[in-house]
């Protein structure tokens, strides 16, 4: 069986030649959650956008392949690529406020895609959306469907977006820090909901986060990203038990623990970062697109 998502040696550059992704390879198997961790600016969001075909215009992919369920996106023309991505993937975004159109009611916003893009009947789409709202534990779907986004709380909006993401039964969901913009108390509920729906629907998720605590809770596999480079990948349990890379070890050490939140908290070691920077600079020196 081919991987749900297979990224092979993906490199991307900015107009000034700076590399934002450095030969990134990662796979997400069907029904599996792969966490993508790294600090701010590491390129996590870039990878998600590359998969979904919405990279900023300024970012250019210079090498590498992306396959969704064995279909090479690079081999498809733009229209076929959009159709494939639209049918098989979905996004759970970071900021649930800006991800919903402020001037349209929730109901039409959610059914629209099923009806217009996937050609469902209005009735079927409506039924499906209500079912999903129930799954994300929205108790008053009538009110929510009639609401404008700003009339709902952040947690409610994120539930709506989770329901929308799962509604069309995508094979792969990219979740880009789906809890970061939320209240701490709501974060856990949302995380649990995503995990629940993921299990029920058997959907593969590429889960972007900078929080190792979240990684431990939700994922089976992890890729650790630093400056656009995957420095380590492993099964989640394995990664925590025996981190191989110095950066991963430093990252784990820098993550607070509930048992002893302060004692274990120390910043990522300077020398580790210096070593990494030197390593990456050396790699950039010898790198040519297509030969990296």
């Amino acid at each position: 069986m081919s991987a749900c998502l297979d990224i092979r040696g993906l490199s991307a550059v900015l107009p000034n030649g700076q590399r934002v992704l450095r030969s990134v390879s990662l796979t997400v198997q069907p029904g599996e959650v792969r966490a993508l961790v790294g600090e701010s600016g590491a390129g996590k969001t870039m990878i998600g956008k590359a998969v979904l075909g919405v990279l900023p215009k300024s970012v250019r992919v210079v090498e590498g392949d992306m396959l969704i369920e064995g279909e090479d996106l690079g081999q498809l023309d733009a229209k076929a690529r959009r159709t494939l991505i639209g049918a098989r993937t979905a996004l759970i975004p970071q900021d649930p406020l800006t991800a919903l159109n402020p001037s349209r009611r929730i109901g039409p916003q959610m059914t629209d895609r099923l009806v217009r893009i996937l050609g469902w009947s209005g009735e079927r789409a409506d039924k499906r959306i209500r079912q999903l709202l129930d799954e994300v534990q929205i108790r008053d779907p009538e009110r929510v469907l009639k609401s404008y986004p700003h009339e709902l709380s952040g947690g409610m909006r994120q539930r709506v977006l989770i329901a929308a993401a799962f509604a069309a039964e995508p094979r792969l969901i990219v979740a880009d820090e789906p809890t970061t913009a939320l209240d701490v108390t709501v974060q856990k509920q949302i995380l649990r909901l995503i995990a629940q729906l993921q299990r029920d629907h058997g959907t593969a998720i590429l889960f972007v986060t900078h929080d190792l605590g979240v990684v431990a809770k939700i994922s089976q596999k992890v890729s650790v990203l630093y400056a656009g480079k995957v420095v380590e990948e492993a099964e989640t349990a394995q990664l925590f038990a025996a981190p191989q890379h110095a950066y991963t070890r430093a990252l784990i050490a820098a993550t607070p623990r509930y048992t002893d939140p302060y004692a274990s908290l120390k910043p990522v070691d300077e020398s580790v970062l210096a070593g990494l920077a030197a390593e990456i600079a050396a790699a950039d020196q010898s790198w040519r697109p297509g030969h990296g």
Binding site: L52, G53, V54, R82, T83, I85, G86, A87, T89, A90, L91, P93, D95, T98, A99, L100, N101, R104, D112, R113, R116, I117
Partner: peptide, 22 residues
């Protein structure tokens, strides 16, 4: 630049459709 425009593109809407509807 809003995320919902990006979401609409991911879902597979055409550019003109997004301009008019979103």
């Amino acid at each position: 630049r809003m995320d919902y425009v990006e979401s609409a593109r991911i879902a597979g809407y055409g550019r003109t459709g997004i301009m008019l509807r979103e």
